[in-house]
Amino acid sequence: MYNDTVLEHFRNPRNAGDIDNPSGVGEVGNAACGDIMRIAIEVEDDRIVDVKFKTFGCGAAIASSSMATEMVKGKTIDEALQITNKQVVEALGGLPKPKIHCSVLAEEALHLAIKDYKEKHSA
């Protein structure tokens, strides 16, 4: 049901873990399935220098977390905000239809983490 890219990211997830004192954290729950994803970012000069995720979810959710965090690493926060779940799915070479929503978790968690950083930063 999952393609090789998805399975590879699932098996060897990039950026799984936590950041001590992160610049921003976003945590979202999926109402449809009850799954949870948390993304933490470390930002220097408006650039994401480190990013980590933790996911309680299905294979698609873990692979999406892995891919999304890879995609934003090194990007400025404005560039990172442009990244959509559609791009994550494309980078993964597609997801089964009922699993598309799992990639939305990654987009939302990331955007929340950036929002959290911005709020902390402007304060």
């Binding site: 699932f10 098996r11 799954d35 309680f56 979810g57 299905c58 294979g59 873990i62």
Partner: peptide, 14 residues
């Protein structure tokens, strides 16, 4: 506790 069974299943399949 803490994990989702689909993830367990895929790893077991490996």
């Amino acid at each position: 506790p803490y994990v989702e069974s689909e993830s367990l299943l895929i790893h077991l399949d490996f």
